[in-house]
Design a protein around this nucleic acid. Structure first.
Lengths: 213, 213
DNA sequence: GTCTATATATAGATAGAC
DNA sequence: GTCTATCTATATATAGAC
């Protein structure tokens, strides 16, 4: 059943850090196995291919995050059926931060992986995510739509993808942006601070009245 | 002085399409030269290296877009010094669409390249853009800041990067999103329609009051 | 300026001994 | 399950003939 320090886990731990920092195609199996201090051939033995390793890395986070996010959403709507968009987006904060208990820098790594997954891989990770976690996603979309009933479905479709872009790009660039913010504004933003900055931006954008023109 | 169909131009034309579609590191010089129908060695003869080719591809757009965007901004502020954020962002629409006259699908390609440049290359394209076109960017940032004086500079920094992410991710996914929108909502959005959808979203996000909490 | 041929490096993947 | 050694493919880049 695998302890926490077997070869498979060591590979996943090293791989997720490197993938998040450098992207998938810029990270070689040789780099991963040398950081993990395991043999090069063990990646193919345990995962079959690099592509499968990438999926395993993502799944390890999504399997924790998706159910947790859904529980948080259900709980919010139970207590507060008329919750506004800010509250709905904010319900994701705790599940995201829990990932830091799972692993060091877990939240940042997860969001960066998600961003890279959507941008870098030509659609196959997008497919993987929507087919494996689509039911969770649907509930979230439904909750957002209900809380902004003045937005027609087609506009909501576009705006939720704008939102995905906002969060995903921000997280993929988070390290670079944090460096600039530190030097230009003397700020030290941790991942939670960035998340809390982006939520009002996204909520405002999703809910803004649709222009008639 | 180079006609419009010399080897150098053929390489740039083929490269920008492939870079926009697949990303920089997923696009080999072999693929570029075969699409361009030129010899492999000509890339290094004309550009020196792949890295320099990437910069040249980006520069060919930025050299047109940046001055044009600045002229449009100056004109807007001359006519309407108190222009709101929607108007300021909208001033970019014409300069963006002009890129379609420069080359087929120019607008989409430019925005996708910009996104890839920010995400994929570990900082060196970001550096290239800000050092070569920083003066244009500063004027735009200044205009946005003036029109939303209630947003502190550090918040504005973050929000403008959120905005960059929104537009860039949307454009990188525009083809896939348009297909979905066409089948689910019976809509046919061209690039201009998408840009006009995203502007109110971004303007609302940038201007939303900063939460005190 | 353009070509062929090749140098050089690095990638993912696998065979087979242990 | 882990190792060494290697296969095979593909990458960027360059030397040198034309």
């Amino acid at each position: 059943m695998a302890g926490r320090n077997d070869t498979k886990t060591k590979i996943l731990d090293a791989a997720e850090k490197l993938f998040a920092e450098r992207g998938f195609s810029e990270t070689s199996l040789r780099l991963i196995t040398s950081k993990a201090e395991v043999n090069l051939a063990s990646v193919n033995y345990h995962f079959g291919s690099k592509k499968e390793l990438i999926r395993a890395v993502l799944a390890r986070y999504l399997d924790v995050f998706m159910p947790s996010a859904e529980r948080a959403l259900v709980e919010l709507l139970d207590n507060e059926p008329q919750a506004d968009l800010n509250k709905i987006f904010s319900s994701l904060v705790a599940p995201l931060l829990e990932l830091n208990q799972l692993r060091n820098e877990g939240t940042t790594i997860f969001l960066q992986l998600l961003g890279r997954g959507y941008i870098e891989s030509q659609g196959h990770l997008r497919w993987f995510i929507t087919t494996h976690y689509g039911q969770h996603l649907d509930k979230f979309v439904q909750a957002v739509s209900n809380s902004a009933p003045h937005i027609p479905p087609a506009d909501m479709f576009w705006r939720l993808h704008f939102t995905l872009g906002t969060i995903v790009f921000t997280m993929a660039s988070a390290d670079a942006l944090n460096e600039i913010a530190a030097s230009d504004f003397n700020e030290d933003n941790d991942i939670e601070a960035v998340i809390r900055r982006v939520i009002p931006y996204m909520a405002a954008g999703v809910a803004v009245p649709v222009d008639a023109h």
